[in-house]
């Protein structure tokens, strides 16, 4: 469904360049008209109302905004939305259906891998990318793969355990 109208500021309509883009988000094709300078994280959060992707810094350090871009983890605050045109993005909302949980989500809960929850979506997306590539990572491999994502609450030890929990569960599931 398209919106019937979107209010724009007086004078802004002519001056502001826009582009129409189509991005596959969590398997669903989404089309939006955006300013070229809009960053991907803001498209997801404000344009597509998927607020699970957080932003925590302006310098590509914290990783709270990590999503999978064509299957690889990227920091969605460091890409423009227009760069996602024609590509696939997966966010935390796409990890599992509404009534289900992905093994990584279960692992984070089971091993107390989160406290305030703010870094968690990015942390889980980075974990998913790791397990997609390496189904049974060592502690060092997990710590290395998650070293682009900052957490202030947990001290990481339980996050490592959470990823290991998920790896075991995924292995059991075959």
């Amino acid at each position: 469904m398209t919106s019937l109208f979107q209010e724009v500021s007086p004078g802004a309509a002519e001056e502001t360049p826009t582009r129409q883009i189509t991005v596959t988000v969590n398997g669903e094709s989404r089309t939006a008209v955006v300013e070229p300078r809009l960053v991907l994280a803001h498209l997801l959060r404000n344009g597509l109302n998927m607020t699970g992707t957080h932003t925590g810094c302006d310098t590509s350090n914290c990783g709270a905004c990590t999503v999978l871009f064509d299957g690889k983890p990227v920091k969605s605050c460091t890409m423009f939305a227009v760069q996602a045109d024609g590509h696939e993005v997966m966010t935390v909302e796409g990890l599992a259906g509404p009534s289900e949980l992905h093994a990584i989500q279960e692992g984070f809960k089971e091993e107390h891998g989160l406290q305030c929850g703010f870094c968690t979506p990015g942390m889980m997306m980075a974990s998913k990318a790791l397990l997609d590539e390496n189904p049974s990572p060592s502690e060092d491999e997990i710590r290395w793969a998650l070293s682009g994502n900052l957490c202030r609450c947990t001290g990481y030890q339980n996050i490592v355990k959470a990823v290991m929990w998920a790896a075991r569960k995924l292995e059991d599931q075959g």
Binding site: G52, L95, E110, H112, G117
Partner: peptide, 21 residues
Amino acid sequence: RRRVEDNRFIRGKGNYVDDIV
């Protein structure tokens, strides 16, 4: 006990100030 609040956080359904419109 596993945490109740995790049920929303792990789904990306937390409700932080910037999520509110």
